[in-house]
């Protein structure tokens, strides 16, 4: 089980589709506890990602990840841009020049998670996308091979759990108690990313 370049592009493509479809939903979530631009920003970013990576010939998965990272970094802006940018940059660094088997993928997600935490000076449980990434990373470490359903399930639960969490990082933190009862928009976009990944894996079986 090795992640193919083609699968990686598919992953981005599916992520983009989900994000475009849910652009308004993401924006509505960000309007409730943030500034109402998450859907706009992340959809602009992944659209640019697809403009960049589709049709290109890549040798390694890491090369796709690098283009994704640079595109998100320069097209998204806000908090999500540098955070997603950092995540993909870390993936690209961990994957660099190698075939991405299960163990390496798991390592990559862990490195990405740590990169995001460091950039954002944030930790699990602060009602940010870190919650989804860390749940996925934990789970990957527990398993030994790709299982789309398990990953999707894990990401979904973590995303849904942000609803009852009190925000201490990001714009939602300004709301304190009033942040409870709302999903974290970044966690929802991260959920789409892992949901898309799960679909690619399931199709590959």
């Amino acid at each position: 089980q090795v992640l193919q370049v083609e699968q990686t592009v598919q992953w981005m493509d599916k992520t983009n589709t989900k994000i475009q479809e849910n652009k308004e939903y993401l924006t509505t979530l960000d309007q409730a506890i943030g500034d109402g631009d998450h859907g706009i920003n992340i959809s602009r970013g992944f659209q640019e990602v697809m403009n960049k990576v589709s049709g290109q010939a890549y040798e390694h998965v890491a090369d796709v990840m690098k283009d994704v990272a640079m595109t998100l970094m320069s097209k998204v802006g806000g908090a999500a841009g540098p955070l997603y940018g950092t995540a993909f940059l870390k993936l690209s660094m961990t994957f660099k020049g190698q075939d991405v088997d299960y163990a390496l993928f798991s390592q990559g997600i862990e490195d990405a998670l740590n990169g995001v935490k460091q950039r954002g000076k944030s930790d699990t449980g602060e009602k940010t996308l870190v919650d989804v990434w860390s749940a996925v990373s934990e789970r990957l470490k527990q398993e030994e091979k790709f299982d789309g359903s398990v990953l999707e399930e894990t990401a979904r639960t973590a995303m849904e759990n942000t609803k009852d969490t009190l925000a201490t990082k990001g714009r939602a933190a300004y709301l304190k108690e009033r942040s409870i009862g709302h999903l974290d928009p970044g966690s929802v976009s991260s959920f789409y990313l892992f949901e898309a990944f799960a679909e690619v894996i399931n199709e590959g079986e």
Binding site: T27, Q31, G34, D35, D37, G39, I40, R171, Y174, L175
Partner: peptide, 26 residues
């Protein structure tokens, strides 16, 4: 927000939000 196309939040006709953020944060 122009690209959002709808108001960031709603306030009733007699309401105000004290301590508003400049991005419409509550």
């Amino acid at each position: 927000v122009p690209a959002a196309g709808k108001p960031s939040f709603e306030l009733a006709d007699d309401e105000m939000e004290i301590g508003i953020g400049i991005h419409g944060e509550p």
